[in-house]
Amino acid sequence: MDIQQHTAATGSVHSGSSEEDTGGPGPADRLPLADFHDACGRILASINTVIEGKQEAARLALTVLLAQGHLLVEDVPGVGKTMLAKTLARTIDCSVHRIQFTPDLLPSDVTGVSIYNQDKHRFEFRPGPVFANIVIGDEINRASAKTQSALLECMEEHQVTVDGRSYTLDAPFMVVATQNPIEMEGTYPLPEAQRDRFMARISMGYPDPRAEMLMLETHQSMSPLREIRPVVGVGEVRAMVATVQDVYVSPAVKEYVVGIGRATREHPHLRLGASPRALLQLLRAAKAAAALDGRDFVLPDDVGSVAESVLAHRLMLDRKAITAGENASGIVAGILAKVPVGAEARRTAS
């Protein structure tokens, strides 16, 4: 196991399972929208100095962070998946751990283990690399299903349970995992329950020729990551998360989200549609997208802008659809084109 940037002190581990003891933002911690927008601009500008030509990927990564979700970055090797995760982590002055997933990695290598202290005659918990604000899981689908499942409780409940005792993870907490396509040698497909824990999935893709030329000119002598410095503190990130939580969602927009979810479950080409968790995360991502655009209310367009990234990786196509060459992204686009937007939501948008 390769754990880099081990910056979190073990003294930050808290015992208990209460969701209120997560260090989350309180009502007084919200930022004005102007300050929120300024902080987002600093983060995105810092990321874009390293990741050339991938502004949409950087924006979505920030959206997921502010919506208290987790991000899955999927693509072929060498297109900047891990670089994006590292750059996002370095823009924030918080604890960062990196885990290199391999077939021989054990669950205790991720969550931690209780070790007997002979001097004190008792067991003591040694926290694993998951105890950090941002956890980078590199090539997560190279580990076995047993090790992958060690992240389920961490990602959903923000806590780790070892030997019957729960330890709370500090907020903000975000897992940024990278994976290679499942067709590649030595990979294990993520199970449906694991994929459903990730708020969004993005594919980096190859850079355009201009960005690739710039990369060749600037990335030869040294890694641009060396020049990255934190532009926001962990307290400011908590306040930004609280600002997103305060974004208003009208009943009409909620009905629109429910309509999208039901359409995925009733689609003739899908064996598995969007779960209730998926709809909750779609709405949270839409709230973050609205705040990034400088608004304190959600429009249907905000839902549509994140729907493909939030829903596509959760959907399972039937064999006929796969044979016909259809894909989940195309199905989500078709659903967005057909699901009606309520009159109240249209009035808000206008």
Rank of each mutant, 00 (worst) to 15 (best):
M1F: 06
I3Q: 12
Q4P: 00
Q5S: 13
T7S: 15
A9L: 13
T10D: 14
G11T: 12
G11I: 01
P27V: 04
P27Y: 13
A28M: 07
R30L: 13
R42H: 09
L44F: 03
V50Y: 10
G53L: 08
G53D: 08
K54I: 00
E56D: 14
L62E: 06
V64H: 11
L65Y: 00
G69A: 07
V73Y: 11
V76S: 05
P77D: 05
P77G: 05
G78S: 10
L88Q: 07
A89W: 03
R90H: 13
S95F: 01
H97G: 02
P103R: 09
L105C: 06
D109G: 11
D109L: 03
D109F: 09
V110Y: 01
T111E: 01
G112M: 06
V113Y: 14
Q118S: 10
H121N: 10
R126F: 02
G128W: 12
V130E: 04
A132I: 08
A132W: 13
G137M: 07
D138A: 09
D138Y: 06
E139A: 03
R142Y: 05
S144E: 04
S149Y: 09
S149R: 13
S149F: 08
S149A: 15
L152E: 02
C154Y: 11
E156F: 00
Q159C: 04
D163T: 06
P172K: 07
F173K: 11
M174E: 11
N180E: 05
E183C: 07
E183K: 13
E185I: 00
G186N: 08
T187R: 13
L190K: 12
A193M: 04
R195A: 05
G205D: 04
Y206K: 11
M213V: 13
L216N: 10
E217V: 00
S221E: 15
S223R: 06
P224A: 05
P224Q: 09
R226M: 05
R229L: 09
V231I: 12
G233I: 03
V234E: 09
G235L: 02
R238T: 03
V244G: 07
V247A: 10
Y248K: 11
A252F: 10
A252N: 05
K254C: 00
K254R: 15
Y256A: 00
V258Q: 13
I260Y: 12
A263K: 08
R265P: 09
R265L: 08
H269G: 13
L270A: 12
L270Q: 09
L270T: 04
A274L: 03
S275G: 04
R284H: 09
A291F: 07
R295Q: 04
L299S: 01
P300F: 05
P300L: 09
D301G: 10
V303I: 15
S305I: 01
S305D: 11
E308V: 14
M316G: 02
K320D: 14
A324E: 15
A324D: 14
N327D: 15
S329K: 14
S329F: 00
I335E: 12
L336M: 15
A337L: 03
R346K: 15
